[in-house]
Structures are given as C-alpha cells and as structure tokens.
Design a protein around this nucleic acid. Structure first.
Length: 303
DNA sequence: GCCCAGGAGAAGG
DNA sequence: CCTTCTCATGGG
C-alpha cells in the first residue's frame, strides 16, 4: 500500500480486501452517505471527507485531503494496516457458512471510530432502526454540533462534545426525536464530562483487557451488553467482542442452528469458533443477514 | 394500521 | 441470577 497526494486528492494504491459499500453499510457507522456518482460523503474526527474506491485498480481516493491528514486520521480510521486476507482465511477454513458470509461482504473493514461519537451513537441505536438512527444522529449534530465543512453546498456538522451535551436539557434535544434515549444521552454526557474524556479513551488501551473494557462501558447510562460490545469493537480495537442484536440472533439461528433466545450459547460459540476475531466475524454475519432478508424471513434453518 | 428496530432499566421473582 | 414490562418514534 502506497499513498501520494496530487492537487488535494490523496491516492492510495494497492488497497485490498476493501469496499466502501461494505464498510459504510454494515451497521458500524451512521454518518456516511453515497452520492449518485458512487462517492461517499461523511465526517470523522472533526473532518469532513469525500472518498471513492475503484475495485479493479485497487485505488482509494480521498478528496480535499492531504498526506498528513491521511497518515494522521484516515489510515487508522479505515483500518488499512490490518491484514484482512489472513483473518478471512482463519475464519473461513473449516466453516463453509462463514466462508459464504465473507464472500458476500468481502470488503468489510472494522473502522476505528471516535470513542465519544461511538458511545452516543450506539446509545441512540438501541431498539431503533438504521435509517432512523442516522436521522437522529444527523439532527443531533446539526442542532448542537459545530459546522466543520461543506461539500456541493451541503453542510456537515460534528457531534456535540460531552460538555455541550451535559449542559443541554431535554427541551434542547426535543427536535432530534430521540425518544426515551434523550435522557440516557444527557446522563452519559454528564458522566463523561465529570470523569474527563481521557477516562473513556483509556478503555481502548491495549493494556486494558477486552472484558474490563466491556464492564467499564456498561457503567454509562443507556449502555448494556450489546451497546458496550459495539463501542468496544467499533472504537476501541477490541476485535473479539461479539455484539448480539436481533439480526445476529436470527443469523446464528438460521445458519448455525442455535436457538434464537439462547444468547449464552451464541457467545460461547463465537468465543470458541471465532476467537479473537469474533467481532469481525460478527460483521460478516450481520452484513450477510441484513442484505439477504429472505434468509432472515425463513422460519427454519437452511442446512 | 400494524409490527418492528444494531436494547436497556426497573421491578419482581 | 433470571424473566417480564415499559420506554418514544417512525420505517416499511
């Protein structure tokens, strides 16, 4: 993989195991959208960005950027230094079900997202559907966040920081239509503002075990097992975490024959068969089931 | 009009 | 420890 910049566009060559459709539409992030031309617009780490990827040329383009920004932000954000090819082989060997799911979502990569953004995003995600989650988050950014950029006349906003959100009231959040989650958000913002953002960031250190991170995250208001696992996986590099939502329950039942309400057995199965890459395996499965609704609707498994 | 969504907290066993 | 109820909102 090599990167160079020409006229404000960063060209990254030889990018393999990569597909923006898979990456941005596998439920791990909510702030990217595809344009008519196939380009993706979105924000991360306080930056607004535009990206496109040519599969045949294995070429990733990042517009309006610089080599410094690529090295400082996007390289890590897009998880470009992880060898997904070897991970896919480890997961697919001796598991034809996983092999099929991986083939379907071959370009998935687990983003390294901002911790605070991931924390509040997945609090909003609970008992909610993805299109509406996106609307809620966009509305929250536009209502309380700072403007960080513009593209084709469209404005982009960062999410409000913990102090801003901690100082807000339910009436301030009312336009965002967060429902009962609004009070969770304010309470968690107060917790983070009081402890300091560093205490949240420390949970992503390599010296902190995945289990410790999981338990610590559950102390935040509105964060239970599923949301804690998502935050640990999508923003803290804890690739073994295995978030179980309604879709994962379906796919574990349809494809592996585990009873749909037996979460314990699903966790044990993931730990035993997917190990340290449980979270990555989970993303292949989630993408597979959410893009093949006919499998999700089957009333029996498909062995 | 109805069921459901990347669930969690509270109450009661 | 586990089970059940409730919680806003609107997508499909």
């Amino acid at each position: 993989m090599t990167a160079e910049e020409r006229n404000g566009v960063v060209f990254v060559e030889s990018v393999k195991d990569f597909d923006l459709d898979n990456i941005f539409d596998c439920g791990q992030c909510f702030r990217w959208e595809k344009t008519e031309t196939g380009m993706y617009l979105g924000t991360a780490y306080g930056r607004q960005a535009a990206m496109s990827y040519d599969k045949d040329k294995e070429l990733l383009k990042i517009y309006g950027s610089s080599l410094e920004e690529f090295e400082g932000i996007w390289r890590h954000y897009l998880d470009l230094d992880r060898d997904y090819s070897s991970i896919k082989h480890i997961l697919a060997d001796k598991d034809p079900v996983m092999a099929k799911a991986i083939e379907y979502g071959q370009g998935i990569r687990i983003l390294n997202q901002e911790k605070w953004e991931t924390l509040i995003s997945f609090i909003i995600s609970q008992n909610n559907n993805i299109p509406r989650i996106k609307k809620c988050i966009d509305s929250l950014a536009a209502t309380l966040g700072k403007k960080i950029g513009e593209f084709d006349g469209r404005e982009f906003f960062a999410l409000p920081d913990a102090e801003t959100l901690a100082g807000a009231g339910l009436d301030d959040l009312a336009p965002c239509r967060l429902g009962y989650r609004a009070k969770y958000l304010i309470e968690t913002a107060r917790q983070v503002a009081e402890e300091g953002l560093d205490s949240l960031k420390k949970l992503g250190d390599d010296s902190v075990s995945s289990e410790e991170t999981f338990e610590a995250l559950k102390r935040y208001c509105g964060v239970g097992p599923k949301v804690a696992n998502c935050i640990a996986l999508f923003s803290m590099g804890k690739t073994d975490r295995f978030p179980i939502d309604v879709w994962v329950r379906k796919v574990m039942n349809r494809l592996y024959g585990i009873a749909e309400n037996n979460m314990k057995e699903m966790e044990l199965f993931a730990a035993k068969n997917f190990g340290r890459y449980g979270g990555i395996a989970q993303q292949y499965l989630f993408y597979y089931i959410t893009h093949n609704k006919e499998i999700a609707d089957e009333d029996s498994n498909i062995f």
